[in-house]
Simulated scan of single mutants.
Amino acid sequence: MKRYSQWFSLAAAFVTALMLMFSTDQSASAAFWDTKGDNIIHDPSMIKEGNTWYTFGTGIGNGLRVIKSNDGITWSAAPSIFPTPLSWWKMYVPNHEENQWAPDISYYNGRYWLYYSVSSFGSNTSAIGLASTDRIASGQWRDHGLVIRTTSADNYNAIDGDLVIDKDGNPWLSFGSFWSGIKLTKLDKTTMKPTGSLYSIASRPNNGGAVEAPHITYKDGYYYLFVSFDSCCKGVNSTYKMAYGRSTNITGPYYDKNGKSMMAGGGTILDAGNERWKGPGHSDIMGNSVIVRHGYDALDNGISKLLINDLYWDSAGWPTY
């Protein structure tokens, strides 16, 4: 009996150790990733290279902000990108060259592609630029110059660029903020710059045009368009919220769960925040299983921080978490 008791105790201890080891290894797979460390970010876009997670975000005056993590939970600062404004920016956005916004990082055809915006707040005098690298960890980025620009003569805004690869392997860029809403254009596979028509895929004509930050992902026969509604950048007073719709064609039309067109202001709300996290928005999705966005922390003076969740899909194919 004593030997049996000792064996049972050892077995129980072994099982407990396995459970602890498993829970530690899987810490980044919880439904809500409780990020910590230097997790301050705005307009996040996340990617994994090797064993390192990188999140890119808006920068004001010091280049595009980059943070990194070995587990997706604890984050630290990495060197910024473009700490010195590129000379060509002032040609398109004079006097606002230090406003580098909303980067999008993606991997395609053996390179990492970084789309970013240079703009003045509240104006559509804006430009989307492009840089690339074969290895993020190298810190060496190739400047590809201007992708698309807008001026006060345009009824749309060239910010919030986001790369999407369609089901046939073709690259597209969605972008837009307020005015006439979200646009989409096909890209040349070599230059990764626009070729062909400009499509309108979402707008909010009865809500002051308050739609921006598009992100498209493809899953099981549908293209899902995620956007942000209303106002960001006001700390705990932000009214930002995330919405979505879907289409069988990348160029639309996109409809929400109620069948309303996203060109007519439609969009099913995914996240409007909670008591702590105000104004969540500017989402980015990895592998259709992880969703990233920022939220303003009501427990920390409304500072914008990195929020990550596992992303799920219901039986009808709609996203949830």
Results as ranks from 00 to 15, higher is better:
residue 69 S to M: 08
residue 69 S to V: 12
residue 71 D to I: 10
residue 73 I to S: 04
residue 74 T to K: 15
residue 74 T to L: 14
residue 75 W to C: 04
residue 76 S to G: 08
residue 76 S to V: 14
residue 77 A to N: 15
residue 81 I to M: 05
residue 87 S to G: 12
residue 88 W to S: 03
residue 89 W to P: 11
residue 92 Y to A: 03
residue 92 Y to F: 07
residue 94 P to N: 05
residue 96 H to K: 13
residue 97 E to F: 06
residue 101 W to E: 08
residue 103 P to M: 03
residue 105 I to G: 00
residue 110 G to E: 02
residue 110 G to S: 05
residue 114 L to P: 06
residue 115 Y to H: 06
residue 116 Y to H: 09
residue 116 Y to G: 08
residue 118 V to Q: 06
residue 122 G to W: 07
residue 128 I to W: 00
residue 128 I to T: 06
residue 129 G to M: 10
residue 129 G to N: 09
residue 130 L to I: 08
residue 132 S to T: 09
residue 135 R to Q: 14
residue 139 G to M: 10
residue 139 G to R: 12
residue 142 R to Y: 13
residue 145 G to A: 02
residue 146 L to F: 00
residue 148 I to D: 01
residue 150 T to S: 00
residue 151 T to Q: 02
residue 152 S to W: 03
residue 153 A to T: 08
residue 154 D to V: 00
residue 161 G to P: 04
residue 161 G to A: 07
residue 162 D to W: 05
residue 163 L to P: 03
residue 163 L to E: 05
residue 163 L to Y: 04
residue 164 V to Q: 07
residue 164 V to P: 04
residue 165 I to P: 05
residue 167 K to D: 10
residue 167 K to R: 10
residue 168 D to C: 07
residue 171 P to C: 01
residue 172 W to L: 04
residue 173 L to S: 03
residue 174 S to H: 03
